[in-house]
């Protein structure tokens, strides 16, 4: 189990333990964390699981894929640390990672 913390837009925090291999979108949906929709089910095809990865974790998370880049083009308020949660898979080295949620998913 790996601890991941989701920070809501209003500042509220939810820390959950996720199994290796699940992605951060699934982790949020399974734990009823509001603010992540995941309409496409994790296919990197809807951009409704937009999150901001805390700077300290960016090197470990790695770069976006080309498709993810394309999809993020159309999300609102995209920053350098924007990612789609469905494209981040939980593994040991991400233990303690913090991601922040945007105001809304478009």
């Amino acid at each position: 189990m790996t601890k991941i913390t989701y920070v809501m837009f209003d500042g509220g925090e939810r820390a959950v333990d996720l199994k290796t291999g699940v992605n951060l979108m699934q982790g949020a949906v399974a734990n009823n964390i509001p603010g992540i929709d995941g309409d496409c089910g994790g296919a990197c095809a809807c951009a409704t699981c937009h999150v901001y990865v805390d700077a300290a974790w960016l090197p470990k998370v790695g770069p976006r894929t080309a498709m993810e880049d394309s999809m993020l083009e159309f999300a609102e308020h995209v920053e350098a640390n924007s990612r789609l949660a469905c494209q981040i898979t939980v593994r040991d080295e991400l233990a303690g990672m913090v991601v922040r949620l945007p105001e809304a998913q478009h």
């Binding site: 394309s70 083009e73 159309f74 609102e76 105001e103 809304a104 998913q105 478009h106």
Partner: peptide, 19 residues
């Protein structure tokens, strides 16, 4: 297709953003 699609869509998108 991209890239023209992406540039034009981005102009329209904010008006129908949730905010």
């Amino acid at each position: 297709d991209p890239p023209k699609h992406d540039a034009q869509r981005k102009v329209v998108s904010p008006i129908v953003s949730p905010m």
